[in-house]
Nucleic acid binder design. Structure first.
Length: 630
RNA sequence: GGGCUCGUGGUGUAGCGGCCUAACAUGCCAGCCUGUCACGCUGGAGAUCGCCGGUUCGAAUCCGGUCGAGCCCGCCA
């Protein structure tokens, strides 16, 4: 057998220590005859009486140790006492395994260490779950409680290593491109993002609080004013909102900002960076299309029903209005929707024509959950004719027209949503598309389909508060040709209304999506004071409020602000997707549960009364039972 | 704030009104074993079924509440 198994490169600072000469992943046939010492955890023990096999494990791999009672009675006696997860130091001679006894599964499988001296560095209780069977299912709360044991297992370890490589590649790419990495404060002031802030009371300023940053948005803009024309940071961000599999209260963003740039220039850099980083981190995963496809928000919504489309499969949305146009269709839902200026659109699920009643019901429930009033369907038979419960209203011709419009093939199932709201139709069909695309296995798992979505609407009308809300970020710039739209219908900039031309303005905003997930988003910012004031007025901020909330940055802009723009990319999501995960807890060393608790550290915890007293705080409770206690 | 799912020896599951004095696998403990690599063989210990209450002659099993975990809606650029 040849010694062709790759040996990982030795880091600049040797892995050898007084406890070990080598790691458990590096011994090869060429090392036979050497006397070495290894240190690691007992991965598994196979006791044959006079002969004990110990699989010794560390981060780098596993090496089999044999302890022979005849050769080394003392070592054998110690090995006899060991159990799984004991930490050992073992000295012995590297020997080629007997012919036919090699283990192909192990990088070190051609050799074994003949243990002469075994020392127990640390004993271990029986772990609460299997560490040596990485595929065995374990309740996630147990994994969270004993995270340090979960990290001993290969799958999580490898995801953390991947994430480390990702961040390293990001740093490399930015440094090469002349970016400066600058840290910004964690103890900050409330920033204008829409999420709830985490609050930290100040002892030195009793009654005042810091807010943890939801992102370093304002600070990076201030760095642009400061003349740092290319800034980036791997920044921890905090948002006190309800959690999901892809949302944690604290998360990490790649935050970057550039000066003297256009939208095009920022996208150019970010795209090149993403390609470089992807190739460095997951060289085995092909990028579907370069340059990344670009869609306007409008187009993405029309074609995919999503501003973060999964482009690994087709299933584009189809407008059925042309097929239904002349006269009335006889199906009231469609007629009324079209008459009201609403939309009737469809998505075609390939090969699902034989869906059972309960499957259709389930899809209908899915559609309802996302706001649709119902879900119509047409199943395409082998002869190409459409069959549908609503055929009796529509008539054969119109059903055929629907099949034709959807370009559906025999065996396909056409799912139709009708609603006065264009956005709702898009949203529901988009979700169906995403869900079915995955269920039907249409998406190639290994492919990385990045794309850009840009030209988002600047604002959304906030009915409750009677003002325009920035869709993205209050500093986002408007596309130059829409600048004139940033006015109110009334003429008074502080009297916004739903009819304002501003509702049509598009922002210089761009999102990058990967396989149906939003990876990040950014914009070219407004750097001119005058335009910023107009935009803020539309968002319902009076001059006083503007200064109260954004005084610092407004003042800074008066000292000469360069045109600038940037982006923020979610590192947790990115590493999760690169590791084939959809749950960001799987790429975080110490994540929190959905209720925001840390099962390992038992956080959050009751504060020491003295800490409260020092801060001048008292807990008065927010629920009846709390109030009753105080 | 709301909806849904789950909670049974250390772990993963089965059992879903009496046949349960709770089963299986694995782990654990003890003994045997010199070529295993999910070693093997023999024996043993280990759960009152998350918690509280109710229904019932009888509850792991049904109902209500509660606690914990997850998924989703709202929320979150």
């Amino acid at each position: 057998m040849s010694d062709d198994r790759p040996v990982p490169p030795e880091p600049a600072f040797s892995l050898a220590t007084p406890y070990r000469d080598a790691t458990c992943g590096e011994l090869r046939a060429g090392d036979a005859g050497r006397t070495v010492q290894l240190a690691g955890w007992v991965h598994r023990r196979r006791d044959h009486g006079q002969l004990i096999f110990l699989d010794l494990r560390d981060r780098y791999g596993i090496t089999q140790v044999v302890v022979d009672a005849q050769e080394s009675p003392v070592a054998h006696a110690v090995a006899n006492r060991t159990r799984n997860e004991f930490v050992l130091e073992i000295k012995g001679e590297v020997a080629r395994r007997m012919a036919g006894k090699e283990n192909e599964e192990l990088l070190t499988g051609e050799v074994e260490l003949r243990g002469r001296e075994v020392e127990i560095l640390s004993e271990a209780q029986t772990p609460p779950f299997y560490i040596n069977e990485p595929d065995a299912p374990v309740d996630e709360s147990l994994r969270l409680r004993y995270r340090y044991l979960d990290i001993r297992r290969r799958p999580l370890l490898e995801r953390l290593l991947l994430r480390s490589e990702l961040v390293r590649a990001i740093r490399d790419a930015h440094h090469k491109a002349g970016f400066v990495e600058i840290e910004t404060p964690i103890l900050l002031k409330s920033t204008p993002e829409g999420a709830r802030d985490f609050i930290v009371p100040s002892r030195l300023q009793p009654g005042s609080v810091y807010a943890l940053p939801q992102s370093p948005q304002q600070l990076k803009q201030l760095l642009m004013v400061a003349g740092i024309d290319r800034y980036f940071q791997i920044a921890r961000c905090f948002r006190d909102e309800d959690l999901r599999g892809d949302r944690q209260p604290e998360f990490t963003q790649l935050d970057l900002e550039m000066s003297f740039v256009t939208e095009e220039r920022v996208m150019e850099f970010v795209e090149a960076m993403i390609i470089e980083v992807s190739r460095a981190t997951t060289p085995d995963r092909p990028i579907q299309e370069i340059p990344f496809p670009r869609f306007t928000y409008e187009e993405a919504l029309e074609r995919f029903g999503s501003d973060k489309p999964d482009l690994r499969f087709g299933m584009e949305l189809v407008d059925l209005a042309p097929a239904l146009r002349e006269g009335t269709t006889g199906f009231r839902v469609f007629d009324e929707t079209l008459a009201a200026g609403g939309r009737v659109k469809a998505v075609t699920a390939p090969g699902m024509a034989d869906a059972t009643r309960s499957q259709i019901d389930e899809l209908t429930q899915f559609a309802r959950r996302h706001g649709a009033k119902g879900l119509a369907h047409v199943a395409v038979a082998a002869d190409g004719t459409g069959h549908s419960p609503i055929a009796k209203f529509l008539g054969e011709e119109r059903v055929a027209a629907i099949v034709a419009a959807a370009a559906a093939r025999p065996g396909d199932l056409i799912l139709i949503v009708a609603d006065p709201s264009r956005e709702l139709v898009a949203e529901v069909l988009g979700r169906l598309r995403g869900e079915l695309g995955l269920r039907l296995g249409l998406a190639e798992p290994g492919v990385l389909a990045y794309c850009w979505v840009h030209r988002f609407p600047m604002y959304q009308w906030d009915t409750e508060r009677g003002r325009w809300d920035a869709t993205h970020n209050p500093f986002s710039g408007v596309v130059p040709e829409d600048e004139a739209l940033l006015v109110t219908a009334s003429g008074d900039p502080y009297e916004p209304s739903r009819q304002d031309p501003a509702g049509k303005a598009r922002a210089m905003q761009y999102d990058v999506a990967l396989n149906g997930w939003e990876l990040g988003g950014g914009s070219v910012r407004i750097h001119r004071r005058e335009l910023l004031e107009r935009s803020f007025a539309l968002q319902g901020y009076s001059l006083e409020q503007m200064h109260e909330r954004f005084g610092g940055i407004l003042e800074a802009f008066d000292f000469g602000a360069p045109p600038h723009g940037g982006i923020a990319i979610g590192i947790d999501r990115w590493s999760a997707l690169l590791a084939y995960q959809t749950n960001i807890r799987e790429v975080m060393a110490f994540p929190k549960t959905q209720s925001g608790t840390d099962l390992m550290m038992q956080a959050p915890s009751q504060p020491d009364p003295e800490q409260f007293a020092e801060l001048g705080l008292r807990f008065v409770g927010i629920r009846p039972e709390h109030v009753a206690e105080s």
